[in-house]
Amino acid sequence: MSITINLYYIGRDGQAQQFVQAMEESGIADAIRQEPGNERYEYFQPLDRPDTVLLIDQWSDQQALDAHHASAMMEQLAQLRERFDLHMQVQRFTELPDETADAQFIRS
């Protein structure tokens, strides 16, 4: 059962976007994408919230997520969040085992 976490990084004066740039340029984001159990690590910008960046962070299971949280990269990530003075809002979702339940509502 996959776990998806939506992290909203909220800053001022472009700080959230600068954080994402630092994550990508430093290689931290790519390293996280390579961790066992990582299924998605992708940034987006909400159109109605210019000082916010959304990270969709998906893991295969809780064990993979726990290993990620225990990794050395988390300290680097925390330092960058502090450097750019970001605040966060978090949503957590678990994937339903039967993905066909909503198939009639999805246009491919």
Results as ranks from 00 to 15, higher is better:
E35T: 05
S26L: 04
A16H: 05
F93S: 10
A22D: 07
L96R: 08
P50C: 06
H87L: 10
Q79G: 03
T94E: 15
D13V: 03
A29H: 02
E42W: 00
E39R: 12
A64Q: 09
T52H: 08
Q34G: 08
E75C: 02
Q45P: 01
P36Y: 05
L77G: 02
L80R: 05
D30V: 02
F93V: 02
S26R: 07
D57K: 01
A64I: 06
H87R: 14
Q89R: 15
M74G: 07
I32R: 08
L7M: 13
M23K: 07
L7V: 14
S26K: 05
D57R: 03
Q17C: 00
Q17M: 00
G11F: 05
F44L: 15
Q21D: 10
L80N: 05
D98F: 07
I5M: 13
G37W: 01
R12S: 13
Y43L: 12
D98T: 03
Q21S: 15
Q104N: 04
Y43T: 12
P36F: 04
Q76P: 00
D51L: 06
Q63N: 07
A22S: 15
V53Q: 14
G37H: 07
Q58E: 15
N6A: 12
E99K: 10
H87M: 10
D57C: 03
H68L: 07
D102C: 09
D30S: 10
Q15P: 00
G14A: 02
A67E: 12
H87W: 06
R12V: 13
A31K: 11
H68D: 02
G14P: 11
T94H: 15
A16I: 08
H87V: 10
E35R: 10
Q34Y: 03
D57V: 08
M23W: 10
Q62Y: 04
R12L: 13
D85W: 00
S26Y: 02
I3Y: 06
A103R: 11
D30T: 06
Y9H: 13
Q62C: 02
P36S: 05
G11H: 07
E24Y: 09
V20Y: 01
A64G: 05
E95W: 02
P36Q: 11
R49A: 14
A16S: 11
Q21Y: 02
M23A: 11
P97I: 01
S108W: 06
M1L: 07
I32C: 07
